[in-house]
Simulated assay, not measured.
Amino acid sequence: MSYSPHPTQCLSASCEVSSSTQRRDTPHQASWMKQINSFANFFALVLQRRAQRRALMRLSDAALADIGLTRTQAEEEYRNSFHLL
Rank of each mutant, 00 (worst) to 15 (best):
M1K: 08
S2R: 15
S2Q: 06
S2W: 07
S4W: 12
P5R: 06
P5M: 02
P5S: 12
H6E: 03
H6D: 05
H6T: 06
T8M: 03
T8E: 15
C10D: 15
L11H: 14
A13T: 07
A13D: 12
A13I: 06
S14W: 12
S14N: 03
S14K: 13
C15H: 14
C15N: 05
E16V: 12
S18W: 08
S19Y: 07
S19D: 14
S19R: 09
S20C: 07
T21F: 03
T21C: 02
T21E: 06
Q22P: 02
Q22S: 04
R23D: 00
R24T: 05
R24H: 09
D25H: 15
T26V: 07
T26I: 05
P27F: 10
P27E: 10
H28R: 09
H28K: 09
Q29S: 08
Q29W: 01
Q29H: 08
A30P: 04
A30S: 06
W32Q: 10
W32L: 12
W32T: 03
K34T: 00
I36A: 10
I36S: 15
N37Y: 02
S38W: 13
F39R: 03
F39A: 13
F39T: 08
A40I: 11
F42A: 13
F43M: 14
A44V: 09
A44T: 07
A44R: 11
L45P: 06
L45Q: 12
L47E: 03
L47C: 11
R49D: 05
R50D: 06
A51D: 13
A51M: 14
A51Y: 01
R53E: 13
R53Y: 10
R54K: 13
R54D: 13
A55Q: 09
A55K: 09
A55I: 00
M57L: 09
M57T: 01
R58F: 12
R58T: 13
R58W: 00
R58E: 09
L59E: 10
L59I: 01
L59P: 03
S60L: 05
S60K: 08
S60G: 10
D61I: 06
A62W: 00
A62P: 00
A63C: 02
A63G: 07
A63F: 12
A63H: 15
L64G: 06
D66V: 01
I67M: 08
I67Q: 03
L69C: 11
T70Q: 06
T72G: 01
T72H: 03
Q73M: 13
A74R: 07
A74W: 02
E75Q: 07
E76P: 00
E76M: 08
E76D: 15
E77C: 02
Y78C: 03
R79M: 13
N80A: 08
N80K: 14
S81H: 08
S81D: 13
S81R: 13
S81E: 15
F82S: 12
F82C: 09
F82R: 09
L85I: 02
L85W: 11
L85V: 13
